[in-house]
Design a protein around this nucleic acid. Structure first.
Lengths: 208, 208
DNA sequence: GCAAATTTTCTTGTATACTAAATATGAAAT
DNA sequence: ATTTCATATTTAGTATACAAGAAAATTTGC
């Protein structure tokens, strides 16, 4: 039974391109993005653009005003705070669901991602650092093999990424945050779940 | 400043119609739904149908197979269980975030919805009972005024609704579940949050 | 000069037509 | 009869055209 490799549709590609532009700050919060404009920029028709924008809206990166226009999402302080609350709840659920076997299976990947974060901190590549940071947390959630949780977290993750770039963390704070990944990994290795919960709580709250 | 009343687009209407068909069981899990078929059924073109199906997929009620077809989502036992875990985590977060003032503000609406559930149980209208049950929990989450949490929970709610109709609860169990709403309300009135947490945990776990 | 109303322009919402991929059908070979 | 290959058919993906609503520009009245 051959495993067909389905190539991305234009809508998929465009979705990723626009998302990248938003998360890189090229498209800033509050900016209006007309479909035709994007269509010309990417050399495609409005149809795949519309689909991509709709999807971005579902992921909370874009806000739609019916019959009017699409706008890049802009956090208020409260919404940022609220998002962090949900994030913490989901990550704590993940920790609760983790078994030692799950940890063993994914610990190498987690360590690799944590190391990538530190590397990118050292070389000063924040964009890449944030990507790896997201991947670290996504991996942690993925460990639980709870699809419903993962897809929920994936959703939040888009917004968390948006949040990170708008926060302008100091190097020092960022160093602290990234270091906490190592502590979290250590607590997982020790199967010390109370410590892990506490570390994660600190970790998320530091970013609020 | 006038508050414009924007009427639903065809895509919105179709989205609601298809969603209703899925949640009523008219469209059963595993069924393939070709766009053209729905377009003819609703007397519109494929464009708004496509948008609606995409959205249903984002809400987890439909699964898309790229370049092939859309299918009504079908729970496995594990996925149902996993979903309940996430649900509980979000509802417990809601309870944690609730302040007495928030409770006071919404307690009447909560009571009304709980009563509606009981009424529909007595008259044997399960479809309506499930609608009110969902609304009860959505209202509870809405109390927290945490938009991020609410939109996450709203997402899960679609699937919880799908789950409920596939579960075929006994009248007795259902009576129990619905009665627990009253206990939850009472614990909120008493501002007894530990009790509320415990009741909610039982409430959700009874439905797994 | 300013405010309200009207017109114009721009943008989204929807239908339709076309393309290309996936599935179903049927014929040929074993 | 069964498998394999070629063909046909169906269906999703995309482009384009047009309709309708919202925003912007202009005109009109004071």
């Amino acid at each position: 039974m051959p495993q067909y490799i389905v190539q991305d549709s234009l809508a998929d590609k465009v979705y990723n391109l626009i998302k990248a532009q938003i998360l890189s700050g090229e498209l800033k919060g509050g900016m209006v993005i007309p479909e035709e404009h994007l269509a010309q920029q990417f050399g495609v028709s409005r149809t795949p653009i519309r689909e991509a924008i709709r999807r971005l809206a579902e992921y909370g990166l874009v806000v739609l005003k019916p019959r009017s226009h699409a706008m890049v999402y802009q956090f208020t302080e409260k919404q940022a705070h609220d998002t962090a609350k949900v994030r913490l709840a989901l990550e704590l659920l993940a920790i609760e669901l983790l078994t030692p076997a799950m940890v063993t299976k994914h610990i190498n990947e987690l360590s690799r991602l944590a190391a990538d974060c530190q590397y990118n901190l050292v070389v000063g590549n924040r964009a890449e650092l944030f990507v790896k940071d997201s991947l670290f947390h996504l991996e942690l959630v993925k460990c639980t093999e709870n699809e419903a949780l993962f897809s929920m977290y994936e959703r939040l993750d888009s917004r968390i990424q948006l949040l990170r770039i708008s926060k302008n963390f100091s190097d020092e704070l960022l160093g602290n945050i990234i270091h906490q990944h190592l502590l979290i990994i250590q607590s997982l290795k020790n199967n010390d779940m109370p410590a892990c919960r506490e570390l994660m709580t600190k970790h998320v709250n530091h970013q609020m």
